[in-house]
Design a protein around this nucleic acid. Structure first.
Lengths: 219, 219
DNA sequence: ATTAAAATTTAGACAAATCTAAAAAAATAT
DNA sequence: ATATTTTTTTAGATTTGTCTAAATTTTAAT
């Protein structure tokens, strides 16, 4: 079956919100989609009759197995396109989200199959998030935030959970990107802020709020 | 300004029909878009208020300078994507039209700029049609159909004007594609049919109707 | 346990794009 | 030149996705 752009956006947003909370609320989804709660209720009834969500009035909702499969496929398309935009077209990693948001709705299955081959089966997108495979399997990547990391070990930045333009702007300022190698040199217990050292650049201090959003793995 | 997918499809279809007849009729456009004449009238009023067409009730219509510019830009996007699909993703040239039909509506200007660079500024799409440049300039390619060509000269197929799946199917059967080298070996004046010889393959005869749709240039 | 506040849903309206059926205009055929 | 056919437009309905405002349900507060 084929879904409209609007339906796909709802499915994708429910999926993303579910990563944080098992059940999604009308307000949070309206907020995520920059729409009104009433519109969310309308669309949810539709997705319910199409057997994509479990939905109980006033009780919140979540994707069922079917809806989940579709969501993961949209995520797959989105992340493959992001990889293409950065690694083939030379976009900066903080400029590709919007464009991938449009490209992900192009429906050809053959297109994505061939794109995957052309890109040589990438495992993660430019933000470090895993790209689901054809069967919807998502490689698990152990996620440790900078706030949790042991001091003085060299680590590689693997992903960033908050991808707002403001956050990405700031990361650029600190010279932090996916794959950046850095070292945590100090923890300040007073406010949870962290001193880090990115190779070649002087040490700098980032707030706990930021540190919590930067995930790394040991190299 | 930004246009809806539907608006863009109307603009593009008017553009294509204008290549054949200066003024387009409601019926022909409805037929091209597989919609109903009443819908065409509705949309035309809209395009008129948006200053994209010259339109007089019952009199037919055509794109104005503004509309033309937008149409050419859509054509540019379409043909760049077709080139990408064939030359990067390895699609067959007769399978890409539908997909490009979706990709062409992705609106980022930066995307198309970078795609053009990535593809190394291709001049023609996989069907041999010229790709308009950033300024909307379209390289003129002298078009001679197989029906007009002098016998016994070697020629290269440069484009095919009828791109219906049926036509493309048949061309594949005859081993004719863009860039194919062939020789016209005989003209039959009785019905206008033409005998051709594609290198390595036995001679074959194509009808005048087909010959008129295959354009070539001397090598 | 009521009451107040917040969240959610319903009811009814609207814009975009389409359709059918009927009316109007243009083209054609006698 | 008039009648017939074809083409085009209008009028009104429909679908999708959205909205506002009001009603309902749930949650939180006293």
């Amino acid at each position: 079956m084929n879904y409209s752009v609007s339906e796909e956006n709802y499915i994708k947003s429910i999926y993303h919100l579910q990563q944080q909370t098992a059940t999604v609320t009308t307000n949070s989804l309206a907020n995520e989609l920059k729409t009104k709660p009433a519109s969310v209720t309308d669309m949810l009834k539709k997705l319910q009759t199409k057997q994509l969500v479990e939905y109980e009035k006033y009780r919140g909702f979540k994707l069922n197995a079917n809806g989940n499969k579709i969501a993961i496929n949209i995520v797959r398309r989105h992340r493959l396109w992001e990889f293409f935009l950065v690694n083939k077209l030379g976009f900066e990693w903080d400029k590709v989200h919007e464009i991938a948001e449009e490209l992900e709705h192009v429906s050809s299955i053959e297109l994505i199959k061939r794109l995957d081959i052309f890109l040589n089966f990438p495992q993660t997108d430019p933000h470090g998030d895993p790209i689901p495979d054809t069967n919807g399997k998502i490689a698990f990547i152990k996620q440790l935030s900078l706030a949790e990391i042991t001091v003085k070990k060299n680590v590689l930045v693997s992903s960033v959970s908050n991808q707002s333009p403001e956050m990405l702007e700031m990361l650029k300022h600190y010279h932090i990107g996916i794959g950046t190698s850095l070292k945590v040199t100090r923890h300040f217990t007073f406010d949870g802020s962290v001193e880090i050292k990115v190779s070649q650049y002087p040490s700098c201090i980032i707030s706990e709020q930021v540190a919590k959003n930067i995930f790394v793995h040991h190299d």
